[in-house]
Amino acid sequence: MTISISPTVTERDSAPTASPGPRWEAVCRYDRLLPERGVAALLGDVQVALFRTHDGTVHAIGNIDPFSGAAVLSRGIVGDRAGVATVASPVYKQAFDLVTGRCLDDPDVAVPTYPVRVADGLLEVGLP
């Protein structure tokens, strides 16, 4: 099984400022994630939604649905739109790009994204 780390907006944005890099926090075992289903994690006061797509890749985006304000994106249906991996908000069904956090139904809206990695079978999320 290949495990890749999803490229994220956070990483790209942080590169020019030469910040010390993300602080990695272990969340759960990788195999705790069902294929094409999400879970939520609480990191301090930040809620992160983690998804494992069918090819084994893990993505992390903010858990709060900007349209309803409810912390529910981890409970959406994972799929793709024209090949772009997405999760659909379970409240009003807008699709979010799992890689960029961009809302595909409203270009003015996006959710944060976070880097993820697997170390010793543990899933870790990078916080700024």
């Binding site: 249906i77 994972v78 991996a85």
Partner: peptide, 10 residues
């Protein structure tokens, strides 16, 4: 085709 969505999966 693809991996489905919130329409076809349910």
């Amino acid at each position: 085709t693809g991996r489905g969505c919130d329409i076809c999966k349910p």
